[in-house]
């Protein structure tokens, strides 16, 4: 990774998807989104607004789904961070990921990782959401391709499948 000359001196480590990563010579203002993508080789979280208005960068920090663009990376050293790369099981698709594919919830795919993380988080806290709960829980994730219809269907499908298990 490129090390800036003169502006970076922060050294710390982050625990992402259960693994500890060292961050060296970083600039203090770097967001968690930047550090994940540009320093830790985890580009799954996407940046599309830099101000918490699109949800593409959603990750889970200590059990809360947050916008990683608004997390100062150096301030989450003692937390557990989960990104889209940490979902699924050893490369196998999670039920949510599979449902997004089956229902046509993916077009350009740029918002998809943020949605996948947000949906996993929703279904962990509300296993059996109704449509209003789904829509409100995902109202911070903007998609400009799908109009959300296929995404709604994907979430409904997972909820139904998990219920019948």
């Amino acid at each position: 990774m490129s090390t800036p000359s003169g502006i970076g001196s922060e050294n710390y480590s982050l625990t992402v998807n259960g693994r500890s990563h060292d961050v060296k010579d970083s600039w203090i203002g770097e967001s968690l989104l930047y550090v994940l993508r540009e320093r830790l080789g985890l580009p799954g979280a996407k940046g599309a607004c830099e101000q918490g208005e699109c949800g593409s960068c959603t990750v889970v920090v200590d059990g809360r789904a947050v916008c990683s663009c608004l997390v100062l990376a150096a301030s989450v050293v003692d937390t557990s961070i989960v990104t889209v790369e940490g979902l699924g099981d050893g490369g196998r698709l999670s039920d949510v990921q599979q449902a997004f594919l089956d229902c046509g919830g993916v077009q350009c795919g740029f918002c998809t990782p943020g949605f996948i993380v947000a949906v996993h988080h929703l279904l962990e806290s509300v296993p059996d959401p109704d449509d209003h709960q789904i829509r409100e829980a995902l109202s911070g994730n903007i998609c400009s391709c799908t109009g959300y219809g296929r995404i709604l269907e994907a979430v409904q499908q997972v909820a139904v499948a998990r219920r019948s298990k």
């Binding site: 203002g29 967001s31 916008c67 608004l70 301030s75």
Partner: peptide
């Protein structure tokens, strides 16, 4: 002072704010 970061980081990301030292309320 850094709390949730939802205001401060917008300033840092977009409006040229360059804090030199930060106190996080997380703990």
């Amino acid at each position: 002072i850094l709390s949730g970061g939802t205001d401060l980081m917008v300033e840092v990301n977009l409006h040229g704010r360059r804090p030199t030292a930060i106190v996080s309320l997380r703990s």
